[in-house]
Amino acid sequence: MKWTMQDIDTYLQAKEYVDTAVIPLIPIDLKEDVKQKVSMGTFISTMADAIERQFKGRVLLFPAFTYIKNQPLEKRKSELIDWDRHVYEQGFKHVVYLTADGDWKQVEDELPDMLVWLPALPFENMEDRYLKQMIDQQMKQIIPLLTNKWQSEPKQRP
C-alpha cells in the first residue's frame, strides 16, 4: 500500500494484516555529484514501487526519509530511529530501510531493524525492456529478504 488516500483506507480497514513499513532513505545534495544523488533517488523510488507492487497487502510504503547529504550521520540516524519508533509503536513489527547511500552501511548495526542497501544502477538511459529485466533481477534478491524476515521474530526495540 502507498501513502495515498485510496490505499490508506484499505490500510485502516485491514491494519492487522499490514505489519511491514518500507522507508526509502534518499539523500539531497546540490553541491557535489548532484546527478549521482538524483540517480540514487530515482533508483530507490523505482525499487520501492516494485516492492510495494509485489507485497501490496502487507507493506506500507512511506514517503521517503529525505536528508541533506552533508549533515552529520549521527543526526540523521537518530531522526530515522524516531521514525522507526513511531511506526513500530503503531503496529509495524517489521521496518525496512531501503537505500542506495553507502553511509547507512556504517551504522547498520545501530539501526533498530533491517537495512536493505542496493548499489544504484543507472536506470536513466535504459530501454524499457532492459529496465524491466533489471527491476525483476533486483526483485529476485529482495523478495526472499522480506519473506525470510517474516518467518523470523520481529526485532525487539530497546
Binding site: 494484516y17 507485497f55 501490496k56 497487502g57 502487507r58
Partner: peptide
C-alpha cells in the same frame, strides 16, 4: 491476490505444490 492485492506466484512454496501462493499472508 484477492485478499489485499499482493502478487501471487505459481508453485513457489514447497508445502503447497501446484497452487498459486501469496507470500504476504
Amino acid at each position: 491476490c484477492t485478499h489485499l492485492g499482493c502478487t501471487v506466484d505459481w508453485d513457489s512454496n514447497e508445502d503447497f505444490p501446484n497452487q498459486f501462493f501469496c507470500p504476504c499472508h
